[in-house]
Amino acid sequence: MTEVKAGVEYKINVGDKNFLLNEKKFNLLNNINITGSITKAAKLTKISYRTSLNYIEKIETSLEIAVVSTTKGGKGGGGSAKLTSEGRLILKECKKINAIMELHKEVNEIEAEVISVNKEKQVMTIEMKDLNMTIPLNEKYEVGDNILALISYDNIFIMLEEQKSSVRNILKGKIVEISLSGEMIRVKADVGGIYLYSNITRSAEENLKLRLGKEIYLGFKAVSIATLKL
């Protein structure tokens, strides 16, 4: 079963409303979708029935929509519950974010601010400390938004000189750590006060003659950056 990461809250947008969904609330909705019962879903989520109703009420009040539809039971009682189309949309959005996180288990996490948006070129610029990066335009983001940029270790390559290429983001840094990670060499670089990690092959390390304190350039394509709105 797909689950939201423990201790993490995701901002879910539905129309012009949004709601912070955490692990418990997500699992409750997911379990309702699976079992068709709030009572069973509450037990699987390890919360009380009263708490589950409170969670549902908070979500529906914040978004001003119904996310769970219930029907009363017959003579035998019981009743049933199912997610509305909006409730299923919330699950879908959460799973999309989770899929990004699973795809990039080892990622550089950088808090940044959107400082410009270019709709004509379909890109936007984000800033962290004194560094800028270009990433694909996300229509949901506006100038001034704080975001988390995620760049996989495997998507960052190392150069000894700055080169002209299709890569939009090339940052100068200094190696502060070199370590072995499985069959790969992990390089940690200080880039203007921000630490970035890159995984390279042993042969690449030897060819580049990497060592502690050496100045390098780190490059990555704009499309290799995933983002979450904070």
Score class of each variant (00 low, 15 high):
185 I>K: 06
185 I>C: 05
180 L>G: 09
195 Y>Q: 13
185 I>Y: 10
200 I>Y: 00
203 S>F: 12
179 S>T: 14
209 K>S: 14
191 V>R: 03
209 K>Y: 09
209 K>I: 14
192 G>C: 07
179 S>Q: 14
176 V>N: 14
176 V>S: 11
167 V>D: 03
202 R>G: 15
180 L>P: 05
196 L>G: 03
200 I>R: 00
201 T>E: 04
182 G>H: 08
179 S>E: 14
167 V>T: 09
177 E>T: 12
198 S>R: 07
208 L>M: 04
206 E>G: 09
181 S>A: 15
184 M>S: 06
170 I>A: 03
203 S>T: 05
166 S>W: 02
170 I>C: 06
197 Y>A: 07
188 K>C: 09
189 A>F: 00
204 A>N: 09
205 E>A: 11
204 A>Q: 07
193 G>P: 04
175 I>L: 05
205 E>M: 14
207 N>P: 08
208 L>V: 05
180 L>S: 13
186 R>E: 10
169 N>R: 01
190 D>G: 04
200 I>C: 00
181 S>I: 12
209 K>E: 13
169 N>S: 04
188 K>L: 12
207 N>E: 15
180 L>Y: 09
185 I>G: 01
173 G>P: 06
181 S>Q: 15
173 G>H: 00
175 I>H: 04
178 I>P: 04
202 R>T: 13
187 V>T: 03
180 L>C: 11
166 S>A: 12
188 K>E: 10
166 S>T: 05
191 V>I: 02
175 I>F: 08
203 S>K: 10
164 K>S: 11
166 S>P: 01
202 R>N: 15
